[in-house]
Amino acid sequence: MINTLIEMFSYTFIVRAVVVGLLVSLCASLLGVSLVLKRYSMIGDGLSHVGFSTLAIASALELGDTPLTVSVPVVVLAAFLLLRISENSKIKGDAALALISAGSLAIGVSVISLTTGMNTDVCNYLFGSILAMSNDDVTFSVILAAVVLTMFVLFYNKIFAVTFDENFAKATGVRTGIYNMLIAFLTAITIVLGMRVMGTLLISSLIIFPALTSMRICKKFKTVTICSAVVSVVCFFTGVMLSYNYVMPTGASVVIVNIAAFLLFWALRIIPLAKLKTALLRQRIKQL
């Protein structure tokens, strides 16, 4: 076990991917609690697809060496747009997400097939690759993750209020629009950072799974948030080890570990109840 760990971390590309991945899973799990409760679970999926198409277009136009600097602003813009659409227009949130998500995936795939052709690069974009991170990417990711975490802690109480009851918050003079935009902004950054390790198709799981898992057991917003952060980080690390040991794609292994964690937490909630029921049944049988 320890030998495997030492061997694993002797590769710098794995260290880079793990550093970025841990930060991203931490940010995603914190934001995920709010997004899942606001019924915005699929926002991660939509935004990552937008990220995919901007990466494709950026590489087709040969816009610089660091695709992150191109895709962050575009995805942030898409996040604001999504928020606007779902608030104001007649197309409802989930339908708007589906439109943007499928549309940008189609554009991305078309651009790639017209320029470089469908190759392993595309596969890496879609399902994630541990080799994707350069040193510059890591620096950029660490800075952005620090921003996301600080903002989340500073605005924790506001995010709670806006998530629990937007109408009440608005009525008592809290500027909910700004905090909704803040959540969208932080989510967009997190998605772009995590996209290349986790893959376009799988990044949304980092937002959804830890939140749902911790909601099986925890009953306070604060504990849900903290538990979700811990679950997410542990699952990511275990997933990377799994992926290293069995030579599986990183994103997929992380999701599989997350599924296991979800089932475990779910079982933990069910089992005490089951015990209680059998105990009651036994008592009744005795009485009979």
Partner: peptide, 30 residues
């Protein structure tokens, strides 16, 4: 900002993981 409001409950709230105290305290936000 000085009006206390009791809105109709939304579907999302009915399964919200928060303690009663957390909810009450959020009224102080404004």
């Amino acid at each position: 900002a000085e009006i206390g409001y009791l809105p109709q409950q939304t579907a999302a709230q009915k399964d919200f993981p928060a303690s009663a105290y957390e909810v009450v305290l959020s009224g102080r936000l404004s």
